[in-house]
Each structure stands twice: as C-alpha cells, then as structure tokens.
C-alpha cells in the first residue's frame, strides 16, 4: 500500500439570519416570559414556532394566542453521549435530559432540556414547568430547562 495523504482544514461556519415578523414578535415576548402561538383560522392548529402560513391549510396566520409555560411531557430521553452545542461549537457533556413538551394552549410540542437527568425519574405524561434565565434576552434559551412538577 502506497502512502496515503490527507489534508486537514478547519473552517469557520458563520451565519447571519433574519427572523421574520412572527418570530421577532415571539422572541420579544420571551423577554417578558410571554409565550405566544399563531393559530390557523382553518384547521385551528396553534403553531409553535409561530410562522406566517399554515403548513396544512396554507392559509396566512395572524391570530396570536397565549400559551402557558407549563405543559405535559410527551416524550423524553437522557443523552449520555457528549454532544456539540450548535450555538458555540463547544461540547455539552452528558448526561442531560431532553423532552418534547406540549405547553398548555399549544398544539405543537417544544423540544427542550429537562432539569432531571435520571431515566428512572422520567415518564411520558409528567407535568413540567419552564425555568427562566434571570437575565432575559429574547431567545429560546431564555428558558434554561423544564422542571418536573410534583
């Protein structure tokens, strides 16, 4: 076997994204611990994340409805494998809990971290509540994680 040559390159992946109006209003709401969904006048689905058009009916969406910061755990996992945080490129060590949470007043589920990371203490159907960051910045990680309610 002849010599194999490889070339290593480290590339900076930069981005600058516009949110659009719906996500801007939603994000501003987070600064006041307010969660809002957009509801479709056709199928009545309440969308999170809010977006301008219903994916099912293709109708424009403009009816904002309030959503609670409490909800029900629809699905969960505890991640043991260290995983990369896509915001920073840094590794996030396990174990950490993750859940699909149906917030009261929304039809979509929200993917977020859980305060609990013991599989034996997690179950589908548990009630959970958002734990907010002290200094709110108008971003999804204003919610640090969800804690299990008794």
């Amino acid at each position: 076997m002849s010599e194999r040559i490889s070339v290593a390159i480290e590339m900076a992946q930069g981005w600058r994204y516009s949110s659009g109006d719906a996500m801007a209003r939603f994000s501003e709401g987070l600064r006041r611990k307010r969660i809002e969904a957009l509801q479709c006048g056709g199928c009545r689905r309440r969308y999170l994340p809010p977006r301008p058009v219903c994916g099912n009916c293709h109708l424009p969406l403009s009816d904002w409805v309030p959503v609670s910061d409490k909800g029900t755990l629809e699905a969960w996992t505890v991640v043991f494998l260290p995983f990369l945080d896509a915001r920073t490129g840094e590794v996030r060590d396990g174990p950490y809990g993750m859940g699909l949470i149906r917030l009261d007043g929304s039809d979509a589920t929200l993917n977020h971290y859980l305060a609990e990371n013991d599989p034996a203490r997690l179950a589908v159907g548990m009630r959970v509540r958002a734990v907010w960051r002290e200094e709110l910045r108008g971003a999804m990680d204003d919610i640090l994680h969800f804690e299990i309610l008794p």
């Binding site: 480290e10 590339m11 900076a12 992946q13 930069g14 981005w15 600058r16 994204y17 516009s18 949110s19 996500m23 801007a24 994000s27 501003e28 896509a86 915001r87 920073t88 490129g89 108008g138 971003a139």
Partner: peptide
Amino acid sequence: MIREGSIN
C-alpha cells in the same frame, strides 16, 4: 430580528 453566530 437578526441572529448571528459562528462555529468552527
């Protein structure tokens, strides 16, 4: 609203 970032 604009969000910016970069990772290697």
